[in-house]
Structure formats: C-alpha cells, structure tokens
Simulated assay, not measured.
Amino acid sequence: MYITITPQKLGGNYSQSSAGFVSYLEKENEGVAEGAKEHFFNQYEDAITPEKVVKEIDNNTTKLKKKEPKFYSITVSPSKYELKRLQNSSKDLQKYTRDLMKDYVACFNREIDGRPINIDDIKYYAKIEHSRNFKGTDRQVRENQPYATKILELKSEVRKIETGLMQGSIEKREKQIEKLEARAPHRQDGKRIVQGMLKAGNQSHIHIIVSRKDASNSVSLSPGSKYKASEVNFNGKTVKRGFDRDRFFEKAEKTFDKTFGYQRNFVETYTARKEFIKNPNYYFTALMGLPANEKALAFKLIRESGIPMMPSIPTSQAQLALKIFNRLKKGVAVAVKSSSIGI
C-alpha cells in the first residue's frame, strides 16, 4: 500500500479553491449512468455532491494566507494483492477510509479545548476511483522511453519520405519500428506501455480531500507539519503541535490488515521501505532471514513493483541501496528459482 499526503499547490501559491481538484476527481463519472457513479462521502454521509464538497472546503479557510495550504490531498493506493482481499471494492474501501481517518486524527499531537482531537473535529471528503493511467514517472513508461523516442523519430522519417522531403526506404524504417516495438521491455495486452494508457486489472484507490482547518474553522491542523510531537509556548500558553506521519502510515497498514485479514509480507511494510533507504544492510539481512515461502513472495513483489524506495530520498543513499540490491539479487534469484515454492 502506498499513501501520499500532499498540499495542492499551483506555482508559488497554494490553490485558493478546491474546485479544480474536485472536478478532476469527477472525471471517472463522465458518461457513466447515475447508478454506477462513485460519489463523494465523509464519515457519516454518502452520495455528497461535488458542489457541496467545494463549498464546505472553500468556506473553511479562515485566517489562512495565500502561501498556506487550504486543504490536503491524501491518496491511498492498495496493491493488487491487497485488493484481492476485498469482497466489494467500493463498499470495503469506503469502510476502510472511515477507519483510516480515525487513525489520521489519532496521529495529531493537538488538543481542542483541552481534549485530544477526534474524528468529528476534521472536515474531509473522500472518493473511490477504479481506474488509473500510466504516468510519465511510472517505471514502465520511463524504461520504454528510449524505444518510444526512436520509434517517433523513425515515424517522422517515414512521413518525410512519403511527402518527398527526404530520401530513403520506408520499408526499412517500418521493419526497424517493428523490431523496436518488440524489444520494448514493458507491454500490456500485447502493446507497448505508453504514457496515458489505462492500467489493466483492479486499480481501485482512494482520494481524500481534508481541510487544513478543523470543522469549527478555528484550529489549524496540518499533516504537513515537520514536528512529530512537541510543545511550544504561545502567548504564555503551552500548546501541543505536530503530526506523526510514520505512525499514520504504520497504523494505516495495521487497520487494513485487521479489517480484511491480510497477511502483509515484510517488503510490503512501510517500515521495510524506510529501512531499505536508511539501513540497507539491515533490510537485506531481514529479507534473507524470512521463511522460504515469505522470501519467495518477497522477491516476486520486488520484481513486480521495482525497488521499494520512498519518495524524496537523497540520490546518494538510493544509489548505495541500489548497488547492494543488485549485488545480492543475483545470488538470491538463483535460490528462489531453484526452490520448489510455487507462487
């Protein structure tokens, strides 16, 4: 499972309205029959209109400056293995979202009127989506790009030859294009994966819009705070502050596993992904120490999803971890391949 928490930013300033983001999240409903549409929901209500979401979020921004986020976007992307545990993607993910947002508020080191914040203190709206497109940043698209670039060049040459702007063999270039198409490392349904292509399989995921201000529009609650848990003196009064992201990500996994009876592999955990970067030797020691079945599954997961790296990691550390991974992968691949374990 991958979870991101981001402020919606345009250029140097943050979005002053949620309208654009809400409109973007409505894209899957275009041309869909009313009964099949996915609607916004919150902790207690279903089928909330986009207009109400925009109004509630945009009117809950008292005293926030232009350079401060008005709302945050939380995206929750379960893996295909996690999604297999669901009986009904929409209903199950809606239930999980409501439990997840209880985990979210529990990770704030804040108080309102002398008590810890609770689920009723936040204003959020969520929506389930079931499709995804390949982005330019996806590994498959990036690794296919050199082939795509050369194919584009050859097609351009074919058009020039056809219009008399260039001399050469069209047949030769078409054969080169055919070979490049076949050599591209990543394909889906027989076609080279390109940016914008719909991803196959169950792609259900969750988008959550959460207001920066609490439900009373008086207290600022920022999951982007750099403070995990601390206290500060403000106008002669001790005030708690901070949001523990690590705790939130870990609680999110545990809640999913408990709710759906999911047996999480070591390499799927947020803790393991952090260790991969911070302490690669420990990561691989733990990986090699897994029971045979779990180890085989772990390497299958790694092969399918790529190196489990966290975002915003210093390049030098990532390169170090990658070197260690490549060195160990060769020996381990032989062991996994020679085992009698079927996955």
Rank of each mutant, 00 (worst) to 15 (best):
N144M: 13
G224Y: 09
I177R: 00
N235K: 12
I208E: 07
S131K: 09
S211C: 04
L198H: 15
I193R: 01
V158K: 08
K160T: 07
Y227V: 13
G190W: 06
R241I: 12
M166A: 15
K237Y: 05
T137I: 04
S169E: 12
A215K: 00
S218V: 08
N233L: 14
R132H: 05
S204Y: 09
I206K: 00
A200D: 13
L221F: 00
Y227D: 12
G168N: 05
G236Y: 04
H186C: 03
M197H: 02
P223Y: 11
R142M: 07
Y227L: 10
D189C: 07
I177W: 08
F134Y: 15
H205Y: 08
S222I: 03
D214H: 09
S220E: 01
Q167L: 15
P185I: 06
K213S: 05
Q203Y: 07
S225L: 08
N133M: 14
K237L: 04
E178D: 07
T238I: 15
V239Y: 02
K199E: 03
A148R: 07
A200E: 12
P146N: 12
P223C: 13
V141F: 04
V239A: 01
S211H: 02
K226L: 13
D189N: 14
A200S: 15
K191F: 02
M166E: 08
K199I: 07
N144C: 08
K160S: 15
G136V: 03
K237E: 02
A184M: 06
N235E: 13
K199Y: 04
R183H: 12
F234N: 03
V194E: 12
K226H: 10
G136K: 15
R139C: 05
T137W: 01
K150V: 04
G168T: 05
K172T: 12
I208W: 03
V141Y: 02
K199C: 06
E171I: 11
D189P: 02
K155N: 14
K199Q: 11
R212Y: 01
K191L: 05
S225V: 00
S230P: 02
N202K: 01
N202I: 03
D138M: 13
S169A: 06
Q195N: 05
N217K: 04
S220K: 13
N133V: 11
K155D: 11
K179R: 14
Q203G: 09
E171V: 09
K226M: 10
Y147M: 06
V210F: 06
V158S: 08
L198T: 12
N235Q: 13
V219H: 13
K175R: 15
Q203D: 13
T149N: 12
Q188G: 09
I206L: 12
A182E: 15
A200T: 11
A182I: 04
A215D: 15
P146L: 06
